[in-house]
């Protein structure tokens, strides 16, 4: 029996630019850990927060819901939130739930604009 792989969360902050890099699976088990980390991140004002999902192999509605909550909070507090580096499987979940139109999704993990 395998336990859920721990979700790795790396936070880099440079002045008012912030990057949160995730690696692993985001599901019901790991979403609460992610939520706690993200809420701590946005306690400090920022201009731009990049959520780097290139290392996320799997996400379900628990993870997507956590990111929706983050977006709602950043809408209120100010600062841009962008999602970057989504693998096809992860992007598909945003498309199925029609949330791909709700977020700014950038092509690569560096946060460059989609072409």
């Amino acid at each position: 029996m395998s336990d859920a792989s721990p979700l790795k969360i790396k936070i880099d902050r440079n002045d008012r630019q912030c990057r949160v890099t995730l690696a692993g699976d985001v599901d019901m088990g790991s979403a609460p850990v992610l939520r706690k980390a993200l809420l701590e991140v946005i306690e400090t004002p920022f201009d731009r927060l990049v959520l780097d999902l290139a290392g996320v192999n799997y996400i379900d509605s628990s993870g997507v819901g956590t990111i929706v909550e983050l977006r709602r909070r950043t809408d209120r507090s100010g600062g841009d939130l962008v999602l970057a580096g989504l693998q096809e499987r992860v992007r598909s979940v945003f498309e199925i739930t029609k949330l791909d139109k709700f977020f700014t999704i950038l092509d690569d993990a560096e946060g460059n604009a989609a072409t």
Partner: peptide
């Protein structure tokens, strides 16, 4: 309703969709 953008309640929608 997916027009109501909020966390939670997406699981059944996903199941029915896929």
């Amino acid at each position: 309703d997916l027009e109501d953008i909020r966390p939670g309640g997406l699981g059944v929608h996903i199941i029915k969709s896929v």
